[in-house]
Every structure is written in structure tokens, then in C-alpha cells.
Design a protein around this nucleic acid. Structure first.
Lengths: 196, 196
DNA sequence: TCGGTTACAGTACAACTGCATTGCCAAAGG
DNA sequence: CCTTTGGCAATGCAGTTGTACTGTAACCGA
């Protein structure tokens, strides 16, 4: 090893720059030169750490997923009521503050990107699939504990919950209504799943 | 008038080509040359009918809105039960067939586009705002007629319904699950609003 | 010390982008 | 007839794109 450099750290730093560019000017403005400039490095360096642009994009997408997953994992105490726990979990997906707005914009851009590029879509699929299973399990547990209504299929309810959050996020990002309003709608939906 | 040409028809034809390109290769692949090639016309002709690319984009976005609005208006008989009417309405927004998949991809791409370009966002905002109001009114009417549960605020319920459809659409477009599954989830949600 | 590998920076290049310009042709009005 | 005007094609241009190819310095095992 000729020189000590944390490869992963460099890649992460570059990916962060890419996300900043994407959030501010859209995914279409993401070019090697723009990313390099945003990261204050040379184009050659970006090339050194990523074979081509697609690899860089996929890596950045992975970072977004990791960030989300990390925040989701942070909210999971075992003894809190399931409803509160689910709420804390899913609220993390709404663009309620600056940081989550940026991530939301990038994630939205990637959704559009992935809708056409099947290779990229794979990464997103796995992520939400396991999230769906996880939320479904929690709802099933809540039903068993008598905390949730049993008139709905748990997996379907989980799918609805995730889709609702996704849709609310998109609309808030588009400025159709405020984040608070989205939160109120989300809570109202939770009321139909659990009690008052 | 030197020669009789239906200007609007030409613009519409070009916009259709743009949507095909966007659906197949993503919004970033939308260039004057690609659109011209897809429409089997010259670049000069595209330039002749649109001052610049942005005007073309905005026009295409308007076409998507019009198409959606047209399909929505088609499903509104006055004497059908409100639930069925709402269902027929909102199902139009899900990517259940080829045509709606294409439109969904373009709409999704524009959502991402608009999340960064406030000028473009305006067009989308108005559209969903009046849709939200419309659906809200129908739900209020259904509540008054005793067809829907009265435990939820009509406007909030409308917002949730639209957001749910939006989220389901995004997930179906991303291949996370099938359109049938999305439909089932949507129907289950309707069950919580109306009776069985 | 030497050779090899890694970590960059710089540049060159072909392909592409949006847009402006130019020119030709058909039709309508004087 | 002939000039004007709109419809359309072709080409040129400056800028940006992804990528390949340099060059050069730092480091480490031998």
C-alpha cells in the first residue's frame, strides 16, 4: 500500500458532493466536473475513485439508503408502544427539516432515474421491500397485542402506510402543502389503523 | 396566412414525441435532436414551434395534466354511488396500463424536475390543488349522505387519498410491486373510508 | 536504492448539447 | 406578377459532457 488513504471515506465525500449538487440543481446537473468542483477536488480524482459516472451514481444512491436506514434503526426501542414506534419510524421519511428535504429531493430524482434504468432500480427495490416486510410485522404484532384494528391485512396496511408517506413526501417536496399538514394527514391515517 | 397548418396540432405531436423519449430514456435524454428524431421531423421544425427547450417542456407538462384531467372528467356521472365514482376517478392515476405507465414516468420525472425548478412546480401545484378540493367535496357529500364514515376531516381524507395514489404509483413504476397489488391496497383504504 | 504501485492533476478528444443563422419553397395579398 | 410571410431544413457555433490518456509525486517492500 503505497500511500495511506481511506478509500471509502473519499468515495463518501465525493458522494456527498454529488448529493449537494443534485439537491440544488437537479440530478441532470450532476456531472463529473460539477461534482468535482463541489467537492473541491480534481476531475481526475473523481475518476480515480469511480470507474464511470454510473458507478458513482449507484454508490451515492446507496449512501442515501444507508442514511435512511441508520435513522430508522435509531428509533426502534423494544418496549415503546408499537404505534409510537411506527410513527417515529415513518416520520423519518417525511421531508420535515432541511436535511431530510435534501435527501428527499435526491431520492425523488433517483426514483425517476430508476423508473427508466432497471439496473439502478434494483437498489431501491430491495430497500423498500424489507421495509415493507418490517412494518408489516410490526402491524401484525400490534394486531396480536390488541393495539391495532384487525380488519386489514398487515402487509397491505404496511404497503399503504409506506405509499402514503412516499406520496406525502412527494407533495411536500413539490410545495403542494406544508410538512405540518402532511404530518396531520399521516396521524389521521394512523388513527384509522390504531385507536384514537 | 401563407400556409394553413394547425399549429397546436404540431406542438401536440412534438410534445407526444418528447413524452415517448422521456418515458423510454428518462427526462435527461430529452434533447431537441432526440425529440425531433422521435417525431420524425427536423430540429429546425421543433425550434419553429417552440422558442426554446423550456417552453417545450412546460407545454409537454401541460399536455400530461390535460390528459389526466380529461380522463378524470370522463368518469363523473352524477347518479353513481360516490364511492364508485371516486374509485373510478383515482384509479385513472395509477399506472395500470401502458399509456398510464408512460404518463406516470413522465409525471414522475417532472415531479423531480419541479422539486428543483420552482417555475415548473407552479403548473403541477394548481392541478393537484383543485383535485384535492374536488375529492374533498365528494367525500364531504358522501359523509352527508351517510355513505362514508364521519370520523375524518374530508379535506384531510382527500389529501391522504391523493398522496396514497401518488405513492402507490411511484412504487409500481419502480417495480416494487404489481399494479394489481396497488389496486388491492387502494381498495382496502377505501373500505376504511366507506363501509365494506 | 530501486522498482512498482497508488494517488492524484491536467489535458485532450469525440460526442453531444441548446441555440442562432441562413436559405429555400409554397402560398396568399397587393 | 411579385413581394411578403410563414413553414421548414440545414448548417454552424460555442459550450458541456464522459472518458482516455498522459505526467508526476508519494509511498513501500525488496
Amino acid at each position: 500500500m503505497p500511500r495511506k488513504v481511506d478509500r471509502h471515506e473519499r468515495r463518501t465525500r465525493i458522494a456527498a458532493a454529488l448529493m449537494r449538487v443534485a439537491a440544488e440543481r437537479g440530478l441532470e446537473a450532476v456531472s463529473l466536473r460539477h461534482v468535482a468542483a463541489e467537492a473541491s477536488v480534481s476531475v481526475g480524482m473523481v475518476q480515480h475513485y469511480f470507474r464511470d459516472k454510473d458507478e458513482m451514481m449507484v454508490f451515492a444512491l446507496g449512501r442515501v439508503s444507508e442514511n435512511v436506514a441508520a435513522r430508522l434503526a435509531a428509533g426502534g426501542d423494544a418496549d415503546t408502544p408499537l404505534r409510537e414506534m411506527l410513527r417515529a419510524l415513518l416520520v423519518q421519511l417525511l421531508p420535515l427539516d432541511e436535511e431530510r428535504t435534501v435527501e428527499g429531493q435526491v431520492a425523488l430524482a433517483f426514483q425517476a432515474y430508476a423508473a427508466v434504468r432497471p439496473t439502478v432500480a434494483e437498489g431501491l427495490r430491495e430497500n423498500t421491500a424489507q421495509m415493507r416486510a418490517f412494518v408489516g410485522d410490526r402491524i401484525r404484532a400490534a394486531q396480536a397485542a390488541g393495539e391495532a384494528v384487525t380488519t386489514v391485512d398487515p402487509l397491505r396496511a404496511a404497503t399503504a402506510l409506506l405509499a402514503l408517506v412516499e406520496g406525502l413526501g412527494v407533495h411536500v417536496l413539490g410545495g403542494h402543502y406544508s410538512a405540518d399538514e402532511a404530518l396531520a394527514v399521516f396521524d389521521a391515517h394512523l388513527d384509522t389503523l390504531f385507536g384514537p
